[in-house]
Design a protein around this nucleic acid. Sequence first.
DNA 1: AACTACGCGCTATTTACATCA
DNA 2: TTTGATGTAAATAGCGCGTAG
Length: 297
Amino acid sequence: MEVEDMCDTGLLLGLGFEGWAASPLAPADRPRSRREASCVKVELREPALAGPPVVDPSLTLSLSDGAYHRSPAAKRAFGDVNTAGNGEPRPAGRQSPPHSMVSSFSNAYPSSSIKKEKDVVSEEVEAERVSSRVSDEEEGNARKKLRLTKDQSALLEDRFKEHSTLNPKQKQALAKQLNLRPRQVEVWFQNRRARTKLKQTEVDCEFLKRCCESLTDENRRLQKELQELRALTFAQPLYMQLPAATLTMCPSCERMAAVAGDAGPKGGVAAGGPFGMAPKPHFCNPFTTSHPPSAAC
DNA sequence: AACTACGCGCTATTTACATCA
DNA sequence: TTTGATGTAAATAGCGCGTAG
């Protein structure tokens, strides 16, 4: 595999994100569809993303679909009650009819011991509905945007640090505590998660850019070195220039890198032309864990 | 097993509001 | 003081997925 090929494999993807990352909200640079946006995710295995660029980054590419979705088992373990209705009105267009809301509750809390809780939640829902109706009338149906107080934001942040998602019960409790509607709490958490992810994406992009620069430099250096060695071999056969001790073996294919003509049919011709290749340095593909064939092979 | 309804999370987008030159 | 540009974050729209019936 050629050095450029290896660069292309990983770096084109990184560069592809570059413009988008530089201005994540610029509409022109955004992916055209949500599917497109989530189709490929660059997954970084480096724990300290904000740190200095690493020479040998371990990058893997993986499909992102489902990566951000917790499995049902995980959700249960985490305390999510997906099947339980949260009893709050959904946005227009997706609003469920009242009877379905009731049936959802009876499904989620079938035992009579929880019946009380159901009633409490239903009352809160009704109260919320009334209050939002009242507030709508007060506001003359104008869409007013709530600004959270510092205390409210601080508490929400604290809760977000504990859990980035809330189950309906937690949501209700938090809404009550903050004197907000559960929907507002839900929206806040949703937006907060989105902001976190956006921030992480920017960090990831920055990291990949630095990787790209580092690998480009390395590539340039190796090309230059290759040219020099080729020029050298015009004047003198390589084996005469290098003592045997300097010959190295490729850890992957176990061929002597600097010996011309000993590598079978393809031999040094395929790898480096009729003049053989320099024994070092060996280029290690940072995107793979095992030792790949060196540039000499 | 296939279908449907529902709840929820996610992403893209809109919009109200604050800040600043 | 007013005004337009810009940024931030609350809110909305709509889709996909998992689950239960």
